[in-house]
Design a protein around this nucleic acid. Structure first.
Lengths: 197, 197
DNA sequence: CTCGAACTTCACAGACCAGTGTACTAGGAG
DNA sequence: CTCCTAGTACACTGGTCTGTGAAGTTCGAG
């Protein structure tokens, strides 16, 4: 039960080479885009041969999926920690907005899942299920907190909070608005106040 | 002054070949992604040679920019028409949300500008200026309508409406939520009601 | 009749792409 | 000693990528 022995989030055990491959791939995929980065580059920058990369991950598509999964796990851990620390259900519903600002400071290229969606039009791609699942998860977190807070229509309101959250992610990067997270939080609070008034 | 003689929006005059190239490129770029579509494919599907494509557009990057510009012009025309038909400033501020549902019915892959942003990490790419400018334009449209409506802080509220709008675009496609546009409109109306109360 | 715009054909360059086959080495555990 | 895991080295396949060069065709307007 030693939690997180290698300090990289709750990613399953990886060999040292695989760890380096995943770290390098994450940085390059996020920074330059998935299609724009070749496996040769990833292998070279990891100090590993392409053979090792394919022995560990099987294909580029699966490496892409591993990259998105690891990043998603880091994000979820952050959100869950904040939600668990919240004093009441309303603050718990706002927890994702509380951590969003800090997260975006290290994520100037926006949401990796949204960006990946843009590059992976095939609905059968293994990463696509992961992408929709993450959005569903966040929406459910909103809904559960709102239901516990006793707002009239938690499902509708959860959908609206999700809109604000995704909007903040994309507006921060695409529209180059550094205040997007704060604006989303205050809008969310306004909607909550309005609904519970 | 014959308006829009070829029914393709106010795109500048193009030769017949260039018109077909742009139409085909728009469809393929939007549907499959920019990096995933080669100029050979575009030329072949347009019934045109690669030579013609390069004679007309100069480079793939400029063709990409032309695609985004044409699509943006169609979207802006739709919004402006709805805003001009609005009976009062508040309805004018909601106009983008009114047309969003219908627009998304023909745009199941989400916002072409957001998708393009994901694929074009280089800030110097000619399309990047176009992308940020479009978001700035929409925000200004919100702000002007809200100022005329006399809400207390039109600038802040305009930013929040933009969040809802971008959030609806991305949630509709990425989170596969067909009700995103309606949810965004009702959230926007709630924020407006709250602000003007 | 001539000029020019639009377009064709086709070969070519030079780079990059994902992915595989074969043979080899270092180190730890049973 | 022997087996297993992780990794190395490296050539190679078959394909795609953007972009260019050179020469020829079609057709309408002046």
């Amino acid at each position: 039960m030693t939690p997180d022995p290698d300090g990289h989030g709750s990613t399953p055990r990886l060999t040292p080479g695989a760890r380096r491959i995943l770290d390098v791939a994450s940085e390059l995929f996020y920074r330059r885009g998935i299609h724009a980065v070749g496996v040769d580059t990833i292998a070279a920058e990891s100090g590993v041969t392409k053979r090792t990369l394919y022995d560990r991950f099987g294909s580029k598509d699966e490496l892409v999926t591993a990259y998105l999964r690891a990043r998603d796990l880091r994000w979820r851990a952050l959100v869950v920690a904040a939600a668990d620390a919240a004093p009441d259900p309303v603050r718990r519903a706002l927890a994702p907005f509380d951590v969003l600002g800090g997260w975006l400071d290290t994520s100037d290229r926006g949401c990796s899942l949204v960006n990946a969606y843009a590059e992976l039009p095939d609905p059968a791609h293994p990463a696509r299920a992961l992408i929709t699942e993450e959005k569903r998860w966040l929406r459910e977190l909103f809904r559960a907190a709102l239901a516990e807070a006793g707002v009239p229509d938690p499902d509708t309101l959860a959908g609206q909070l999700l809109l604000l959250h995704e909007g903040a992610m994309v507006t921060f990067s695409v529209a180059e608005d550094p205040g997007a997270a704060a604006a989303a939080r205050s809008a969310a609070a306004a909607l909550l106040g309005h609904a519970s008034a």
